[in-house]
């Protein structure tokens, strides 16, 4: 872009070979040409600057919009984290509530296991007593059958007079055999029942022990979960506040950058005018019209009067 301008620069054009004469008559023409070329080049530079300023400004607007959108997404996510529990409660409260519920359940489970073990122990004790009673009944039954046999022998010796005793002894033997059969069935059932009751007792003891261990471990984890939940809550709250501050800072930077772009544009406009003034000076035939815009403040006599400064606002 500057190549043409450089080729026109006076000191380049004034470089002459030894012995070569400088044509003084052509000097004003060359100066005018340099001014025209410089004006064209500066206009081109300013045009590019303006395009760049507008592009930067649009990019800046786009960046701010993207940041605003990103922060809005973060805030939505953090908000969801803060209100993700049932009924809109926060994560921290939900986790704490869950830990309390599990601790309560474990305490209840331990109690139920203890009660079940006590009941199983009571049943074992009762079953053993029943088994003992069945053995006693069995011994009584054996003694009864021996007594019946002796009675029948004695009745046989008595002959006809002993016949009624034979009938009674026979009925007693039959009754004793029935008692013996029932007793054996009770003993068999107790034989099956006792190991089952023992298993129930053992299982209840294991459940009680395991529930106790788990409750102990869980109490430690629940404290950790509580700490994590609180940290999560604190982090989410801090991040929400932080994102607002960051957005404010980014908007502040963006606004300052926009002001800088405006300043650059103001400088460009002034430079454009300087070039027009220079152009007009180099081309007297065109008159002051080449200067383009007349800056009104330059036409005022009282330059020291009170002036509003950049960025100031006055309402009427």
């Amino acid at each position: 872009m500057f190549r043409n301008l450089l080729s026109w620069l006076p000191w380049r054009r004034h470089t002459v070979s030894p012995g070569e004469s400088i044509d003084a008559a052509n000097e004003p023409l060359r100066l005018e040409a340099v001014q025209r070329e410089a004006s064209v080049e500066v206009d081109a530079v300013l045009h590019c600057t303006e395009a760049a300023t507008i592009a930067i400004s649009k990019d800046l607007e786009h960046i701010v919009a993207e940041v605003q959108s990103f922060i809005a997404e973060i805030k939505t996510s953090l908000g969801a984290l803060q209100n993700s529990g049932s009924g809109g409660s926060c994560v921290s409260a939900t986790l704490t509530h869950q830990c309390t519920a599990v601790t309560g359940f474990l305490t209840e489970l331990k109690l139920v296991a203890l009660q079940q073990r006590q009941a199983a122990g009571q049943m074992l004790k009762t079953s053993r007593a029943v088994d003992e009673a069945a053995r006693s009944v069995s011994q009584i039954s054996i003694a009864s059958r021996l007594l019946c046999m002796n009675t029948m022998i004695e009745a046989g010796r008595l002959g006809e007079a002993g016949e009624p005793m034979v009938v009674i002894a026979d009925q007693m033997r039959s009754l004793s055999e029935q008692i013996d059969r029932s007793n054996k069935e009770i003993a068999a059932s107790m034989g099956k029942l006792l190991p089952i009751l023992q298993d129930i007792d053992d299982s209840s003891a294991r459940i009680e022990t395991r529930a106790g261990q788990f409750a102990g471990d869980f109490a430690v984890r629940a404290r950790d979960v509580g700490v994590i939940a609180d940290q999560l809550q604190t982090t989410a709250t801090a991040a929400l506040g932080g994102s607002d501050r960051k957005l404010e800072a980014i908007l502040g930077c963006s606004h300052r950058a926009i002001e800088s772009l405006q300043t650059q544009d103001i400088v460009s406009q002034r430079l454009k005018r300087v070039m027009r003034v220079l152009g007009a000076a180099g081309d007297p035939a065109s008159g002051s019209g080449q200067a383009g815009i007349t800056y009104l403040s330059e036409t005022l006599s009282d330059v020291d009067a009170r002036q509003l400064q950049a960025g100031e606002v006055q309402m009427f």
Binding site: E259, S260, A310
Partner: peptide
């Protein structure tokens, strides 16, 4: 970019409601 009191006065006389000097804050 102007902030001269005389110009501000002329604008006010013409019915302008406010005067902001560039560069402005959005």
């Amino acid at each position: 970019t102007e902030g001269h009191a005389e110009l501000i006065q002329r604008a006010k006389a013409a019915g302008a409601k406010g005067w902001i000097v560039k560069p402005f804050k959005p």
